[in-house]
Design a binder for these strands. Structure first.
Lengths: 341, 341
DNA sequence: CTGAAAGCGCTAACAC
DNA sequence: GTGTTAGCGCTTTCAG
């Protein structure tokens, strides 16, 4: 049994194609009588309008393309979900592609998205964007929003996470609890995101008049549990041992915690920890204080940017900040004037 | 600048619409000369074929619909990813919808999917499926695969996780390490999935000639960290205290571990733990032995089922099992003839 | 080898 | 209020 068409419904209900159309999309005048008749036929046959045909007329399928990078982190899946929800609230569907870092794969995916005549494109945290790659999108005036790892580009919009503020908050919190020997474990600052985080750490220390020795900064080239372990191996050997560590990913926290567990170091008695991204921290033992990213509102904000730009393609490039907030849990010790972990 | 059409390309290249079509989809004979000319114009203009129009002719957009339930667990996102990958490998895109448990929301989403004329539908773990709901899908002969929480239904296929085997493996592992006082923390068995897990636990115990007192079974009505804490509060008070606990979700493990941490109970010295689903367990302290679900192959198997049914709609209903495997880590103590945690 | 022509199922003028 | 008609951009016969 194949799909019925509006013509089939029209025939069955004894009305014209147009009338069926009017009933289906609830527009225009239809007499009560015919409307009821058509609705009955639709209900009985289970007719569902063909969106492809509809899309061909209007050249719009009400689709938003979302491109995400392959990542073990739950972060990006949360962003996906937030975008899906926001989109569907406005009658859009999301076409999600997960790509690796290769230039070609992004290129292919963009072509597919354009082929689908999406009404907007969201690219989350792709680290290797360049203008040429996005040229096709721009010239077609397809609204484009980049999230987290972005590229400043005319005619496009960006949502960047307040990483500087987030890192600052984390370290400032530690300082306010009496810590002054605070280590940093993060990714090598080869991208704006990582630079901002490291800068937030340094500035918080500076503001408090605390000098940060370079040995306190442990840099790795990947976000992962194993890297967190390595950070612990190094940082815990420091003499004097830092009383606190700020790590720029909850994934690092997991690894760090494993080493502490092996060495029977207690959190926060022996060392205080603050994480970042707030994805895993609430599930760990003990629950870890972490920096929450405002992910749930991200989708809505992306949709807003997309819509306003569609209505007004000439808008200058906009950048909006996504906030961060410290979520206090049980991993930070309060140190007195005397005390030292 | 709006989208170009094949006609534009034809005009620019001085050939007919048909010839452009042949070049675009690389089918049929085109002289080298004209092909080169057309390709040049396509490259220079950045023309991208309109998939909507293409879809209207063939009534296929090469789209697979995926319906997932709202869930904090990483499990379903892994399944999504696996399906996305498998689909795109075969030239399909996935339209993913996340729904709650309401009957209507599923109904609406199914209609949207049918409207998009998807080539197949995958429903992952929806707990309230019924035949009437799926009627529209079945009568249209749209291939349908249900994953994990499924409904046996003619003309549809299912992938079920070997939960019985998984639970059995977990408990059997504990027994092989000398445990005989093994508790169970899981969700109330109001669904096949939970029944199979509990049954696996019971059977493993039975086979080993170990009696399982009902007090050893802690049942909760949700998968979550908090529920894991509650399980710990109850199970750790038992006298004698179980030497091991099998939990049917890594989420439970997280909560349980938090209580152990507070009480300064060491894993596995004081109590042994085995988790389920292998999502969080490798990140915890210590890394927890858990039952891995073969999620990465799920997408490919779903696509296979979809394809074979599309080619042969008359096929009887099929059920394939998705395997489980024990991943040994550091949360199980070996107990000697004498020993008792 | 190439092109003209007829739709796919729906929408939107435009008449009646 | 209702119906007729002309496409949307592509694919696909079918002639040349």
């Amino acid at each position: 049994m194949t799909h019925l068409t509006m013509t089939d419904i029209a025939r069955a209900a004894g009305v014209s194609l147009t009338t069926v159309g009017r009933v289906v999309r609830k527009s225009g005048y239809v007499s009560e009588e015919k409307r009821v008749a058509v609705e009955r036929v639709i209900r009985e046959t289970g007719y569902v309008p063909n969106r492809i045909a509809r899309g061909l007329k209007s050249n719009r399928m009400n689709l938003i393309g979302h491109i995400t990078v392959l990542n073990p982190n739950m972060l990006y899946e949360q962003i996906s979900k937030s975008l899906n929800d926001a989109a569907s609230r406005e009658g859009f569907q999301t076409l999600t592609y997960t790509v690796d870092w290769e230039r070609v794969s992004l290129e292919i995916v963009l072509d597919e998205l354009i082929g689908h005549r999406v009404d907007g494109i969201v690219i989350t945290s792709h680290p290797r964007l360049d203008e040429e790659l996005l040229h096709k999108v721009i010239t077609r005036a397809i609204p484009l929003v980049m999230i987290e790892r972005t590229l400043a580009l005319e005619g496009t919009d960006r949502i960047v996470v307040a990483d500087y503020e987030g890192a600052f908050q984390a370290v400032d919190h530690l300082i306010s609890r009496g810590h002054d020997n605070i280590a940093y474990a993060g990714k090598i600052p080869d991208h704006e995101v990582e630079k901002r985080r490291l800068e937030g750490y340094r500035q918080a220390l500076n503001n408090a008049g605390i000098s940060s020795g370079e040995s306190l900064v442990y840099l790795t080239d990947n976000y992962g549990v194993e890297e967190g372990r390595q950070a612990a191996e190094v940082l815990l050997e420091l003499n004097p041992r830092p009383t606190a560590v700020f790590m720029t990913s909850d994934l690092f926290i997991c690894g760090f915690l494993q080493v502490c567990y092996e060495r029977k170091l207690r959190i926060p008695e022996d060392i205080s920890l603050v994480g970042y991204d707030n994805t895993l921290s609430m599930m760990l033992s003990p629950p870890i204080t972490s920096i929450r990213l405002e992910l749930s509102t991200l989708g809505g904000r992306a949709m807003d940017l997309l819509k306003t730009r569609k209505d007004n393609p000439g808008l200058p490039s906009r950048e909006v900040q996504s906030g961060t907030a410290l979520v206090e849990r049980e991993s930070v010790k309060r140190i007195n004037y005397e005390g030292r972990g």
